[in-house]
Design a protein around this nucleic acid. Structure first.
Length: 373
RNA sequence: GUGGAAUUGGUGAAGGGGUUAACACGGUGGAUUGUGGUUCCAUUAUGCAAGGGUUCGAAUCCCUUAUUCCACC
């Protein structure tokens, strides 16, 4: 079939929230959508069947990690990432830029026009990842959506640094696009610009000129406060075309998802639900809870009465607490199922709210309940 | 019965006269936003077997008692 197709179905009356469908070679997904992260070709602790039960549409995987291990050629020989990991839903691959930048020891010397020099986290080997290399790897991985190689600018950043980095990210986007040659894979561009309105505008407009299949807003959720993050989204999104999906990278806090949707974002990804799960934290409509807390030791109720996930339908807080305290992996798995389901269900609810033009009421009710605990 | 050694928090323990008893595990809270999968941070003994004594000052020295262990009869 080829590249993804995005169809805008409806814009909410009172906000910029939008309802849409992304059609991929591996099925259709409704937007706005939350995408769980499966860095090393697995959403940690979960099987593809469990992911299907949660109704998550797209999952992420990571170029950096699969490049180093097992290597993109192994994935290629196996028949591509879908076959390799036995997942027949859509997959998006992150470019590896985020990882590589965090591994670069000396920012001034290691970040060069050609790419980023860094040491492998596996064996310390000196490596160079370039925009071309990232796209070539993603071509071979054969994900449905590939991401341009960019710099996720740390926060805070000076205007000067943000400007030169944002300009370089644009040059990298073009270089990546020029070598992209997988007809079944779509390619997204990434808007940077840190917190500066004119840089966000420039980055969005110039990236759109390169004509990508979708656009993402990067450089968020890197330590800035929430209002700053929302501003970054506002600054960028008004210059993005309506007929392409918009993806806010790395955002997964429930309230941030709502705020993002209201601002016109269609796609989100985040490690938060699975990472929190591994550390015993759990989303509920009354706020986050730490299942390790002693008060749950003899609590034989589910994590949430109203939740339809496998963990809530079959297990108690006391049991899951025991598993987490005893460091049993089944505990992390049950909490991962619940946390991902919580965010996926939140997006389902938001789609209904967009349909009914009452997303602001939904937000108010959700926040009131979530923050009162 | 005689002689010797030991007794520090939930656990393993350091400290052999000088202000707030090391460290580790465990416990209890908290953190975590394009994942370097068991991480990070905080907190956790007003007390060193019990009682008495020496000393300006004692977990550290002395005495008594209790308990445990070892050796000998």
């Amino acid at each position: 079939m080829g590249k993804i197709k995005y169809e805008l179905l409806k814009e909410e009356k009172n906000t910029k929230a939008r309802l849409g469908i992304i059609e991929t070679n591996y099925g259709r997904v409704n937007t706005p959508i939350f995408m769980p992260v499966g860095t090393q070709a697995t959403v940690k602790t979960l099987s593809p069947e469990e992911l299907k039960d949660i109704h998550c549409g797209i999952i992420l995987s990571n170029t950096y990690h699969l490049w180093l291990r097992p290597g993109e050629n192994v994935v290629d020989q196996s028949g591509g990432l879908h076959k390799f990991m036995n997942y027949d839903g859509p997959i998006l691959t992150d470019s590896g830029g985020f990882q590589v930048f965090s591994l670069a020891r000396n920012k001034k010397k290691d970040i060069i026009e050609e790419g980023v020099k860094f040491k492998s986290h596996l064996d310390g080997t000196n490596l160079l990842l370039t925009p071309e290399k990232s796209i070539e790897i993603q071509n071979k991985l054969d994900s449905d959506i590939a991401m341009s190689f960019d710099e996720c600018i740390p926060y805070p950043a000076t205007y000067e640094y943000a400007k030169q980095s944002t300009e370089r990210t644009l040059r990298w986007a073009k270089r990546g696009k020029d070598v992209h040659n997988n007809p079944n894979q779509s390619l997204f561009g990434i808007v940077q610009g840190s917190e500066y309105e004119d840089l966000r505008k420039w980055s969005a407009e110039e990236t759109v000129k390169l004509d990508f299949d979708g656009y993402s807003i990067g450089g968020t959720s890197v330590g800035e406060d929430k209002d700053t993050m929302y501003k970054m989204v506002d600054y960028a999104i008004k210059y993005l075309p309506k007929d392409k999906p918009r993806y806010l990278m790395g955002v997964g806090d429930p309230i941030d998802l709502i705020e993002g949707v209201i601002r016109g974002v269609d796609m989100f990804d985040c490690v938060l639900p699975t990472r929190l799960a591994r550390h015993g934290n759990c989303f509920t409509h009354h706020g986050r809870i730490n299942i390790r807390n002693q008060k749950y030791k003899e609590d034989f109720t589910p994590l949430e009465e109203s939740c339809d996930c496998y963990a809530c339908k079959n297990y108690t807080k006391a049991y899951i607490r025991h598993l987490i305290v005893a460091n049993e992996t089944f505990g992390a798995r049950l909490l991962s199922i619940h946390n991902i389901r919580f965010l996926v269900k939140l997006m389902e609810d938001l789609r209904v709210a967009i349909k009914e033009d009452n997303i602001l009421e939904y937000k108010e009710k959700f926040i009131k309940e979530y923050e009162n605990k």
